[in-house]
């Protein structure tokens, strides 16, 4: 080997160095993940084109048949729902990528290196949050083109986007745990569909819950996606915010508290 002088870290690094590495390693991993994402056309299709198609389909195909009582009509009702779903669906990528990396031994390599232990998960979440934010902004742009308007001011509009992002991160944590625990790409995908489709569709995202049969209403009225989307809708269009927002925040905090440690544990144990 021609020698390029590289100083292999001799002793144990100090606390400050370790903290610096935790940040820089997380950024390295997230840049890496975004680079991978940008190289796979199918990922772009799923993360951008799919929500745009949903906007257009609900706006123009189903929208006419759905009666809602909000200012601006169905397109205004729809957009917060689509955005919540878009954020939630971002977690498919999280679970699938982690399962793939686990299977290919990429995670084994990272775990055998002297890098920050937290970086693989944290970097994954940072990258997915970035990706999700871009998607949300694109979908809002498309929404504006088909008639959607924020009618409650800039501050609440930003609040709505932030809430959507937190919903997305919560889902990504659940997905990170399941991706690492299951560790098989196809099963992870199937498992994601099993819970994500029902919780997003059986909510206030696309239709007023009052149009559902009674037994469904009982579920739809009391599940977290509904709270989040009701709060988002309140922020975008005005109307009651406080009650759904507190419930939404309580749920999201609960999900963080339960699933962040579970995901970390699954990462440490990943075999």
């Amino acid at each position: 080997m021609t020698a390029i002088a590289i100083q292999p870290a001799p002793g144990a690094p100090g606390l400050v160095t370790r903290a610096r590495w935790a940040v820089s390693d997380t950024l390295t991993i997230s840049k890496r993940n975004l680079l991978v994402w940008a190289r796979v056309p199918a990922y772009i299709v799923f993360t951008v084109i799919q929500p745009v198609m949903f906007v257009l389909m609900f706006r123009y195909v189903f929208g006419g048949a759905i009666k809602v009582n909000v200012p601006g009509g169905y397109v205004n009702f729809l957009m917060p729902g689509i955005l919540g779903q878009t954020a939630a669906f971002a977690c498919f990528g999280t679970a699938i990528s982690l399962a793939q990396e686990l299977k290919k031994g990429v995670i084994d390599r990272f775990r055998s290196m002297p890098m920050a232990r937290s970086a693989v998960l944290a970097g994954r979440l940072v990258a997915d949050t970035g990706r999700m934010t871009v998607t949300i902004l694109i979908v809002i742009g498309v929404g504006y083109a088909v008639g959607f308007r924020f009618i409650n001011g800039v501050g609440p509009a930003i609040g709505m986007v932030v809430l959507a992002i937190f919903l997305g991160i919560a889902c990504c944590l659940i997905a990170a745990f399941t991706g690492l625990a299951i560790g098989d790409e196809e099963s992870v995908q199937a498992f994601g569909l099993i819970w994500l489709f029902p919780v997003t569709f059986l909510s206030s995202a696309f239709v007023p819950i009052s149009t559902m049969p009674g037994w469904l209403q009982a579920f739809a009225n009391n599940q977290p996606i509904t709270f989040v989307i009701d709060a988002m809708r309140g922020m975008a269009l005005g109307g009651s915010i406080a009650t759904p927002l507190w419930k939404a925040i309580a749920w999201l905090v609960g999900i963080f508290v339960v699933f962040a440690p579970l995901a970390v544990r699954a990462y440490k144990r990943a075999a």
Binding site: R32, L35, V36, V40, K104, G105, R109
Partner: peptide, 12 residues
């Protein structure tokens, strides 16, 4: 460590 399967990111 080079494990039993090639742990590289094929998209990169």
């Amino acid at each position: 460590l080079a494990g039993q399967s090639a742990a590289i990111q094929i998209e990169l």
